[in-house]
Design a binder for these strands. Structure first.
Lengths: 174, 174
DNA sequence: CCGAGTCGGTTCGGTGAATGAACCGATGCT
DNA sequence: AGCATCGGTTCATTCACCGAACCGACTCGG
């Protein structure tokens, strides 16, 4: 969500969650983090988000303990943003929203598909592996382009790197 | 979310979903609809939302096929907003967000608990009944106040009616 | 018949967040 | 020295949100 991000005496848990991830752009940033984006400039290139908004959201997410900001090299100083355990717990939210969009906006056409790493079974809407029936954690989830992937004609480096099947949370670029 | 609700060539399903339910207040309206709120004035009383914003959101949700606006009495004309099948499919999103807030913002204290109607088993975070292991649909879910319910000191009629255990989607007020 | 109340909105002025473009400092590359 | 990259900040403009007031259709009580 956006403006005045508090929901007052609103009903507990859902409202509290929305105060954090309900702001515009926030969930897309978190999704990219799952897909392996870690650097400011990569979020910027992939999301077409105003720089000031990206700075603000990253800072909010770090303060909320969803992302960890770490300097991965000195000289020149370079930062990266990585999901914390608390951030990884947001996966069911991302998953369920993507699922709803697939079903009701895209007529069932997925632009990404998820497989259980090692097992190879596809991961169903509830997050269960169709082959071994286990609940698949994000770091055991492999993402690959689905039938609807070509709907977007983006050609930036991040988009290209994302087309390559890879595991969630693994860094996309060196 | 708010401003300029489109996310351009952003990655398919999640972005499309956010364009609808990502606007400020929208998910809280949908949540109230699950809890049985149906009338304009009841949403207004329970959410402390500006009237103009409520009108706008309801209209958007109706246009998106998430809510159905129906006149339930002529003279005086009275309208009610009821979740469609497409709207009911949003339940996993609400559930997963509420779950995250419970765990990470409220330290595990739930202000509402959910039971499998008829069976009586509690519904776990993934939506499975702890007793019969079935995936519990919203209309088979009974909601009751949890340990953290008294955190909010609201006293409007809608809040009071909501304290009474009842099934999701059933009208809260006559 | 008059006045007050309810419901479901619309209208309007002020505020403040989002936007996009420009700028900036530290560093590396040639 | 000159140019490029990274990770931002600053700034003017735009536009959605906010809250209060207003409104039309109707009912109810006296």
């Amino acid at each position: 969500m956006a403006l005045g991000k508090d929901y007052g005496q609103q009903d507990c848990a859902l409202a509290r969650t929305l105060e954090l991830v309900g702001e515009r752009w926030t969930l897309l940033i978190v999704r990219d983090a799952f897909y392996g984006v870690r650097r400011y400039s990569d979020f910027l290139a992939h999301l077409d988000i105003p720089r000031a908004v990206l700075s603000s959201r990253l800072q909010t997410l770090v303060e909320a303990g969803v992302l960890d900001k770490r300097r991965y090299q000195e000289s020149p100083p370079r930062e990266e943003y990585v999901l914390t355990e608390r951030g990884v717990d947001l996966w069911p939210i991302i998953r369920s929203m993507a699922r709803w969009g697939e079903k009701h906006v895209q007529n069932g056409v997925a632009c990404r598909i998820f497989r259980h790493h090692g097992c190879g079974g596809t991961v169903d809407p509830t997050g269960i592996c169709a082959l071994c029936a286990a609940l698949v954690a994000p770091d055991a989830t492999e993402v690959a382009p689905g039938p609807g992937a070509n709907l977007l004609r983006r050609e930036d480096a991040v988009t290209l790197a994302m087309r390559r099947p890879h595991r969630l949370l693994e860094p996309l670029l060196p």
